[in-house]
Amino acid sequence: MKKLFTLLFLATSMICFGQNKNFLKEAESLNFYGVDYSAAKVFGAAETPAEFKVAFDRINQLFITETKKYDVSKKLKVRVNEISLDAVNQVNGAINPQKLMTTDTNYTLSEEQIKQIVKALPTQNQPGIGLVIIAKLLNKAEAYGSYQVVFFNTDTKEIIQDWATGGKARGFGLRNYWAGSIYKVINNL
């Protein structure tokens, strides 16, 4: 199992570093929407779905309260016009707690599901490039969070580029533990 996990981690790392971000060279700025947990599943955690919903909101707040640590602009070398958490707060608030937990460690999102999540994000059709991190599986047993980084046209909701990534979860408390995986994802941008 450890060999399989190591192989998966190495493959994910290669995918992250092999992404073509040339389209960002032409972009003057982008809008960052935070982490969308609306289709995420949690495996192997003792905390309740209600506790996770609170943690999701608190993780997104880190983009405002700890801007130096969670600085998307610095990693992408593109100015962030706006960090707009309203859209993800709205979809995350609608999460059905009864559907949050899973026993499937292979849970992931299809390309079509990613498109639907982006379309459902209420961005008020502002023109420009948007960035959202879509959470897929928070696997407590493996201490690993898997995500999809998605750049999209905020007006048409067409995906410009996306890739699968993830990060090791660590820290004390529910928020900090899963925020550790987001920190790794941002560092891999």
Rank of each mutant, 00 (worst) to 15 (best):
N188A: 12
Y33I: 08
K41L: 07
V80T: 13
G34P: 00
K77L: 10
K77P: 10
L76V: 12
I182M: 07
F23V: 10
E47P: 01
V91P: 03
G130F: 04
G18T: 02
A27E: 15
A94E: 14
R58P: 03
E111Q: 12
T165K: 02
C16T: 14
V80H: 02
N106S: 14
N139E: 04
T6A: 12
L85D: 09
N31R: 15
K75I: 14
E112N: 13
G173L: 11
D155C: 01
Q161M: 05
F52Q: 13
L7N: 12
I186D: 12
Q98F: 10
K74P: 03
E111K: 15
L138M: 08
L138D: 09
I160M: 03
D104T: 03
I95G: 05
T67I: 02
T65D: 14
K136N: 14
V35M: 05
I117Q: 10
E112I: 11
K53C: 08
N106E: 13
S73H: 00
F17Q: 15
L121V: 10
V185R: 05
N60P: 01
N31P: 02
A164F: 04
N60V: 05
A141W: 01
A120P: 06
T65S: 14
K53I: 07
P49L: 08
A40N: 13
V78G: 04
S181H: 03
A87H: 01
L121N: 10
T105W: 06
Q90W: 01
Y107T: 10
G173R: 00
Y107P: 11
S13K: 11
A120T: 06
E158M: 01
G145K: 03
V35W: 05
V80Q: 10
T123R: 12
G167H: 09
V80Y: 00
K74H: 07
P49Q: 02
Y147N: 06
V54I: 11
E26M: 04
A27C: 09
Y147D: 04
V91G: 08
L100H: 06
I134W: 02
V80M: 10
G173H: 09
I15N: 15
T154H: 01
W163F: 15
N31C: 10
K99G: 03
S38P: 00
P97N: 13
E111N: 11
V91W: 00
G171V: 13
I83V: 15
L121F: 01
M1E: 03
V118H: 02
S84A: 08
G130M: 13
S84F: 07
M1P: 05
I83E: 11
A27V: 06
A169I: 04
I15S: 14
T105Y: 05
V54F: 00
I59H: 00
L24R: 07
G18Q: 01
K74E: 12
K115W: 03
S13P: 01
F17P: 11
K25Q: 07
E28C: 04
A55F: 09
K2T: 10
R170V: 04
G130C: 07
T48Y: 07
L85K: 07
S38C: 03
V118T: 02
M101N: 12
I114T: 15
Y144Q: 14
F63G: 07
G171M: 13
S146N: 09
V91M: 00
N60T: 00
